[in-house]
């Protein structure tokens, strides 16, 4: 029954995909009327004006380009011409660094906040104030104080990953069932052992939800941050290709950004499944 559903869903997905590609193909292959104009001016206007071919690439242009990228993802021909793989590696590296730093700060802090009503009350105003700030708003301050664009991007990732993890950890820790804590109390479990054997496993699903939200935000933010700081990374690549008017590469970047975001989320979803306990 459910395998039947999966099969039908896959067929439907495939049909939607084919229809989309077909529509895209038809929309971009039309030959419009060629305006008669001064050849100099036509040159400036580009192919659209001179041949009537849409400047919007069709699916086969994109597929061909993807194949090109796949064949050689890691070439490096100077600052403005690096393989897609290299750009992605830069972005993923930054996200991982900023994100891991955030994990190291957010989870212990969240633990303390969740365990101590005093700390919860004391830190809450700061968190409430800092949380809604767009991570990009930190960028000028980061650039000014850190004086390094690459590190600033990492800092921005750090700061945007921090809050969801911290808040979820605090919530998960404070919501650990009283009965489990009572079990630990009656067994005279020492605080550190209690933290690792009762509270952490009990709060793990909630913590992982926070981690999943954070990685999603971090991946959203890295593209914007790299557009701002420039140099390397998939965000910079998109912006650079836009300046080169290479819409094919822009489309490919969009696809790849979506793909990597999905993979990051799936990876954490898998970890979440490992620590989730049925009740």
């Amino acid at each position: 029954m459910s395998s039947n559903l999966t099969l039908r869903a896959s067929v439907l997905s495939f049909v939607i995909f084919v229809l989309f590609i077909a529509a895209w193909h038809i929309a971009t292959r039309q030959i419009g009327s060629v305006a008669t104009m001064d050849p100099e001016y036509a040159k400036l206007m580009g192919l659209t004006a001179t041949t009537g071919k849409s400047a919007m690439p069709g699916p086969f242009d994109v597929a061909a380009k993807i194949w090109e990228h796949l064949k050689n993802p890691f070439y490096d021909r100077g600052p403005n011409d690096k393989g897609l793989g290299i750009q992605l590696a830069y972005s993923i590296g930054r996200v991982m660094l900023g994100y891991c730093l955030a994990v190291c700060v957010a989870i212990p802090t969240g633990f303390v906040i969740g365990m101590s009503p005093l700390m919860n009350k004391a830190l809450n105003p700061f968190i409430q104030l800092l949380k809604p700030i767009s991570p990009l708003a930190w960028m000028p301050l980061a650039l000014y104080t850190i004086k390094d664009s690459a590190v600033s991007a990492i800092f921005v990732i750090f700061i945007c990953s921090l809050w969801p993890m911290m808040i979820n950890t605090a919530f998960g820790v404070s919501a650990v069932r009283k009965e489990w804590l009572n079990v630990a109390r009656t067994l005279e479990v020492r605080p550190l052992r209690k933290a690792f054997t009762v509270i952490l496993p009990a709060a793990a699903p909630t913590i992982l939800t926070g981690m999943r939200i954070s990685i999603g935000i971090a991946w959203l933010v890295i593209v914007a941050a790299e557009m701002l700081v420039g140099g390397t990374g998939i965000g910079y690549f998109v912006w650079n290709e836009w300046n080169n008017l290479s819409i094919v590469n822009v489309i490919i970047s969009i696809l790849v950004i979506g793909l990597v975001g999905m993979l990051l989320d799936q990876a954490l979803a898998r970890v979440a499944r490992l620590v989730t306990y049925p009740d």
Partner: peptide, 18 residues
């Protein structure tokens, strides 16, 4: 305070599900 000399069987069994 609680002590290992006194064991409690809870109404809700209170097992650690993980």
């Amino acid at each position: 305070g609680p002590s290992l000399d006194r064991a409690v069987i809870f109404q809700s069994h209170a097992l650690l599900p993980w």
